[in-house]
Amino acid sequence: MFKPWAHIQWFSMGAGVLALILLPSFVENDEIRKWMDILMVAILATSWNFIGGLTGYPSFAPAAFFGLGAYTTAILMNAGFNFFITLGIGACLGALVALALGVPILRLRGHYFAIATFGVAEFFRELADNLRITGGGDGINLPQITGGPDYFTRFFYFSMLGVAVLAVLTQYFVTRHRLGYGLVAIRENEDAAAMTGVDTTKYKIIAFVLSSIFPAMGGGVYAYRAAFLEPIDVFDVMFSIKAIVMSMLGGVGTVMGPLVGAVMMEYLSDYLWGAFTEFHSAFLGIIIVLVVLFIPRGLMTLSQEVKSRGWGSLGLILKSNIQRFKV
């Protein structure tokens, strides 16, 4: 059966990837670096979407897996491993840790799950601060990459792009697969989902594992690029927060939402307050408050509503959004 909509989606996704592949040929290194940062947060946001968006479990664990992957790459590269092999090992390690942790903490719901995942990330940070193998609070150095700035900027950009494409493709297939529908069913009503035959425990663990793999790989690329790691840098709760906020800004539970959110947010922060780097987190705070109050279902949903009701009704839509959940 011919489904034109599916083809348009494939076409636009292909065009997007092609544009990102060709991007380094046309722009300066600075611009490439900016897009690399966008890709990094896009990886985090897309991964969070597996567990937070599709399954509805508000995880604060992205920072934990990001840091885990970063330290895996750092330690293994110091032992002489190839960079790409360390990424693979980091991803496997992230998946194993997510599996081991997922069994106990995915039994928790709501705030308790959020606190447990937060606790895991903080515990990892304390551990990295105190172990000898991680270099403790002094941090750890990585081997420097050889080659000129033109070369290594592109090398890291394409590494990040590879991970991002992998994450988005995985998400795309999951949302169109039995697994994705099962996860959404769990989000809407976990007991009802279990009743209709969804193996909720298994599904939730798969979602949690998927949400851990890509941040671990992204963390590995980040580590090689930074060439120096400190526990406070990579186990930063802000990585988790950014992932969550970007998903929300774009639209939770959709494939495109986290990507739109990531691009919007990074560009906004660059153009609106690039001059006030000191106040970056304050502006992020304001954006969070505005998004939660006015566009809780994300820009994707908002744009659909505006498209069907016209620009004139934008104010009305925002007003109804803010009044929906008040007491």
């Binding site: 927060i241 969550i244 987190s281 992020l284 705070g285 304001i286 969070i288 408050v289 939660v292 109050l293």
Partner: peptide, 10 residues
Amino acid sequence: LILTFGLQLL
């Protein structure tokens, strides 16, 4: 949760 986090950052 996320709303109070935003306020906290600010």
